[in-house]
Design a protein around this nucleic acid. Structure first.
Length: 745
DNA sequence: GACCTGCTGCGGATTG
């Protein structure tokens, strides 16, 4: 056995832990507590304030929270003390249970995992004596409130700490709002404030995280950031060129062609050559690409007569297939590489991998960072990232996206930002009123009825939905009543309506987020197929479907049907469906990469040549000074702004009567309007007031994103959408900058 | 949103 930690190390917090916990630490062979673990002991034992523990590795963080929290429980006596641990993933609860079981056994503290896969008998045992450690998901907590009603107070009354794992995974989403609301409802049930502990990988903005963990009380949150040594990176961006089709006169067809396949095949060849024999993760961005690359790589293994080393992993695969891949990665006896979506980005323990391959730009810098964190975990090993950029050979028909090498430049910009330690902050301004609808129904179900002022006080004033006025809340209740989700009896008590009863009784009520649903595309009464639609749709807008451009004739939000007719004008843009939203900072960095002259050190020879080409185009188009380029009927606005800013600009332009505007990423493309008309509109936008916003967005449709958005009154739906998806200030300054580059404004 | 995440209680059959 290892010797106990030395006196000097143990002199502070460690000795305050329960002796049985101290013994467990010695038996684990730890030489001492890590910095964050040591610093977390006192504030958690005191149980007076909230704590955030930010540390890079999962291992140290959960123990940092649990060692002192369990000390409190163990000393609370047989009949009391409950720690509630909330996790975004079932897999994490199972991991945590494995880690805590032995320690809690020694402390005679029961640990209860509680999620959809846990047997009812185990849950019954906890309900009989609600003490110990409860490991639970937000959805299961929601179910407890709805199903146990008034009995829920008895369960939570002894709670000493609320621990939220993977805090960053909650902030800024409908589900995150639900979690925040549940934390508050637990405190209401217990009739007192309960110390909250948030765990996370290093968060960018600690203030924001603290504000999320304790709204209106961020100042009193004790933030513990572990000092981790910086990791060594090895990064390469590799360029691949798709040869133009032999007939140069033809505009580029969407979908596969020989050149495209040849480029993909070169990427497969390089992946095969470099990844065989070791464990790696490959991120090709979409589920269909996961299938394509796994298949191609497996066929190479077969051709070489070697056992399969490449395994697929994404959300549409069955649990068995996903587990096969996870086991292959963990196994260790044979090399295994997973081709995956962000299902393998966080949570599940898959051991160390040698390198990460990213095909095309990743969805965000934050995501890239998380992915890279999976590599180089063994001491002395660097984290390796290979980024593959596939670009098209330029022809006379090439668009601005190709000419400026948008995909590759975006990859380069994102890596530059990653190396500087920047990543996208979560959007904490979102109101998430969809979740408020869910919480109204849930609280009414929990209490068997509620008065409107009590709901407003519990959910809005004191709860997670501050920022809504009393009048707006009343409008929301009226909308719910009109839809028969709620009703009111003669005393004014709000009850569930018939439809409300129906929804709340169904088991899919507990999740705050909706599953994917698709819009039907209809032409001349014929259904052509369905499409998940990402950005707001207005009549007169063009959409891409099946590689062709269509004009939207009408929009039916209720039935989710878009009627279109063929629109021969214009060229089809590159992408058939939406792309992940690019942050403003990334587009600004792309401009810096294009406008710069310094060589980028991590490019291979082809990528270097592509960058030289892109920089030449940038200069040739005078984009260092110009932001508006007019060619025939097309006006391109080079806003160098994020997608939220560009989307807002598009909606405002249309609200001001500009015929046609589309966010195409690197530009906002306007057609069918005179330049002067566009300049006037930009001037209007640059001088807009917040109060004009509502009127300008009156023709925008398809703003329902959240599960319950359909039940919101129109004005609140727009308010909620704007708060999460649009950037009014960004659009205003983008309009102003475009004007200034033109010598106006 | 490209990609994710989550889910009760009860009746009936079977087993100890």
């Amino acid at each position: 056995m290892n010797s106990p930690p030395s006196k000097s190390e143990a002199s502070s917090g460690f000795e305050l832990l329960d002796p049985r916990i101290q013994r467990w630490v010695w038996e684990k062979g730890w030489t001492g507590l890590r910095d964050a673990q040591e610093r977390a002991i006192r504030p958690i034992l005191a149980a007076e304030c909230d704590v955030i523990i930010a540390a890079a590795t999962a291992a140290g963080k959960t123990e940092a929270a649990f060692l002192p929290a369990l000390t409190v429980i163990a000393n609370a006596g047989e009949e009391s003390g409950l720690v509630i641990y909330i996790s975004p993933l079932k897999a994490l609860i199972n991991d945590q249970f494995g880690r805590l079981d032995q320690l809690c056994d020694a402390l005679e503290v029961p640990v209860i995992p509680w999620h959809g896969d846990v047997s009812a008998s185990r849950k019954q045992k906890f309900l009989k004596t609600p003490r110990g450690v409860l490991l639970i998901t937000p959805e299961s907590l929601e179910a407890l409130f709805v199903r146990r009603g008034s009995g829920v107070a008895r369960l939570f009354v002894e709670t000493t700490h609320l621990i939220v794992d993977e805090l960053h995974a909650f902030i800024g989403s409908d589900r995150g709002k639900q979690m925040q609301s549940l934390l508050h409802r637990i405190e209401v049930a217990a009739e007192r404030r309960i110390p909250r502990i948030g765990l996370s990988a290093t968060l960018g903005d600690m203030r924001l995280a603290a504000e999320y963990l304790r709204p209106n009380g961020a100042d009193s949150v004790d933030v513990i950031v572990s000092d981790s040594k910086s990791q060594e990176f090895q990064i390469q961006v590799r360029g691949y060129v798709v040869a133009a089709p032999p007939n140069n006169a033809q505009p580029k067809a969407a979908g596969d062609n020989e050149g495209e396949l040849a480029a993909q095949s070169s990427v497969v060849g390089h992946l095969y050559k470099t990844l065989c024999g070791t464990n790696n993760l490959v991120f090709p961005n979409t589920r269909s690409n996961v299938e394509f690359y796994t298949d191609a790589l497996r066929r190479r293994c077969e051709a070489d007569g070697r056992p399969a080393e490449f395994w697929p992993h994404h959300g549409s695969l069955s649990r068995e297939l996903r587990e096969d891949t996870e086991n292959a990665l963990k196994d260790g006896s044979r090399p295994a590489t997973a081709i995956c979506t962000n299902t393998l980005e966080l949570g599940i323990d898959i051991g160390a991998v040698k390198s990460i391959a990213q095909i095309g730009p990743g969805p965000s810098v934050a995501s890239l960072r998380q992915r890279l964190g999976r590599s180089g975990r063994r001491p002395g090993e660097p984290a390796i990232l290979r980024s593959y950029a596939i670009e098209h050979e330029l022809t006379q028909h090439s668009d601005y996206s190709d000419r400026l090498r948008e995909g590759m430049v975006q990859s380069v910009a994102m890596i530059q930002l990653l190396l500087r330690g920047w990543f996208e902050p979560p959007n904490s301004a979102g109101l998430h009123l969809s979740t408020l609808v869910q919480q109204v129904l849930s609280v009414i179900a929990e209490r068997g009825g509620a008065m409107a002022p009590a709901l407003f006080h519990g959910l809005v004033t004191e709860g997670a939905f501050a920022g809504l006025s009393q009048a707006e809340f009343a409008a929301l209740l009226r909308s719910l009543a009109k839809l028969d989700l709620i009703s009111q009896d003669s005393t004014g008590l709000l009850l569930l309506g018939q439809k409300g009863e129906h929804f709340v009784a169904s088991y899919d009520f507990y999740a705050a987020f909706a599953s994917d649903d698709e819009w039907q595309i209809v032409c001349d009464g014929r259904v052509m197929g369905s499409l998940p639609i990402s950005s707001p749709i207005t009549v007169g807008m063009r959409i891409i479907f099946g590689g062709r451009r269509w004009l939207v004739v009408s929009v039916d939000d209720e039935a989710q049907v878009v009627s279109v007719r063929s629109d021969p004008g214009g060229r089809p843009p590159r992408f058939d469906s939406g792309r992940p939203s690019v942050h403003d900072m990334v587009r600004k960095e792309m401009r810096a990469v294009l406008g710069g002259t310094a060589p980028v050190t991590f490019l291979d020879s082809i990528a270097s040549r592509l960058l030289v080409e892109a920089r030449e185009q940038y200069q040739m188009l005078h984009l260092d000074q110009r932001q508006i380029i007019q060619t025939g009927a097309l006006t391109n606005l080079f806003t160098w702004s994020g997608d939220a800013e560009n989307d807002t600009l598009v909606l405002l332009l249309k609200g001001l009567g500009v015929a046609q505007a589309d966010n195409e990423g690197v530009t906002v493309c306007v057609t069918g309007s005179e330049l002067n008309r566009i300049l006037d509109a930009l001037l209007d936008i640059s001088q807009l007031d917040n109060s004009d916003l509502e009127d300008l967005l009156k023709d925008a449709h398809n703003m329902t994103r959240g599960k319950w958005d359909w039940a919101l009154p129109e004005t609140l739906l727009k308010k909620s959408f704007v708060s999460s998806h649009l950037s009014f200030i960004g659009a205003r300054s983008a309009a102003g900058e475009c004007l200034r580059s033109f010598g106006h404004g």
